[in-house]
Amino acid sequence: MARWRALPEGLDPAVAKLVSRLRQLKDASGRTIPELAKDTGYSTSSWERYFGGRALPPREAVEALARVVGADAVRLLAVHEVAEEAWRTQPSAAAVDVSPRLEETENGPPASAGTAAGAEPRRSSVWRSVLIAGAGALVGASATALLMAPGAGARPSAAVARRVIYTCVYSRRDGLWYAGNSTTRTQQLVVDTTGSDVAELQCLLQRAGITPGGIDGSFGPLTEAAVIRAQKKFGLDVDGQVGPRTWAALRG
């Protein structure tokens, strides 16, 4: 088990809680920091900053750590959400760390770790999520086309449902934002709901800078966590469910 250095003086308790939890998961996994770097795709120097409380890890790094060590990602991301809010309000805080992944540092210069909150790297992260979701959709469509082509092998079962691919095509009409999947402003959405209304919700969350975990039309734990973040951001009642008030905030 690593002998950790004391955290920086004046670190917000919410941030300290997150760092302590990350340290515990690292120790319990038995991995070294370089091993975690290799498994998560974030550099050794980035993890040293995260574990030292000198930079707040991005949401994606926390998700990657949870996946590697087998931790509950939803609970860990909830701790990260509170820490992120505290980090941005403390007087000496820099922004959430936007250190590039390992493959980016090998192919080009790293982004500055001192970028201010709300600056371009954070918006770029949102657009990168859009591009990744689009690429995944194209791969899925290509695989389906190959499977259905003549001579591709055994004929697929008729019981297999056709995959629906959702995209985000943003437009603004009458002062409201739409993403091309649904025009609802009142539909009630809860966990386990599926369909185009959920895809619209996910696109609007993404446009607001809150990652829903993908644009798949499925209201799962990550989308629920994103809805909770949005409700806190817009000063709404926090229940993780979507109704008229949440729709109005996201479309406004």
Score class of each variant (00 low, 15 high):
E120Y: 08
A137C: 03
S45E: 15
W47G: 01
L77W: 04
S43Y: 05
L56H: 00
S124D: 15
E63I: 05
T105D: 13
V96R: 05
A119D: 10
A117I: 08
V139T: 12
P110A: 06
G108D: 13
A95V: 00
Y50F: 15
G134H: 11
E106T: 12
A78P: 02
E63W: 03
R123F: 13
L76A: 04
A55N: 03
K38Q: 13
R88Y: 12
G52P: 01
R59A: 06
A94L: 14
S45V: 12
P110W: 08
K38R: 14
P58W: 00
A93C: 05
G53T: 05
A61F: 04
P121H: 05
G140I: 02
R123K: 14
A133Q: 05
A94R: 14
S43I: 05
D39K: 13
F51M: 15
V69T: 03
A135P: 01
A78E: 15
V74W: 08
V139F: 12
K38N: 12
G108S: 06
S112N: 15
P57K: 07
S112P: 11
A73K: 10
A93D: 01
V62Y: 00
R67H: 03
S99T: 09
T115L: 06
A117T: 12
A78Y: 00
E84K: 07
L56I: 00
Y50A: 04
A73F: 01
R128E: 09
A86I: 01
S129K: 10
V130C: 11
A113R: 11
E103A: 14
A119R: 05
A135W: 12
A93W: 01
V79Y: 10
V98A: 05
T105S: 08
R123G: 10
R88K: 15
P100A: 11
V68I: 07
S99P: 02
A55K: 04
E104R: 11
N107A: 15
W47V: 06
N107P: 01
D39F: 05
R88H: 13
S125Q: 15
L138W: 07
E85W: 12
G70Y: 01
G53A: 06
L102D: 07
G108L: 01
A73M: 07
R123V: 13
Y42K: 03
A94Q: 14
V126M: 12
S92L: 12
R122N: 07
R67W: 07
V139C: 06
E120V: 09
R59W: 02
R67G: 10
E81V: 02
A64F: 00
V68N: 03
G70N: 00
R59P: 01
S43R: 08
S45P: 02
D97A: 10
S129E: 13
A93K: 00
S46H: 09
P110L: 06
A137D: 14
F51W: 13
A61W: 03
E60R: 07
G52R: 02
I132L: 13
G52Y: 02
R49I: 04
G41Q: 02
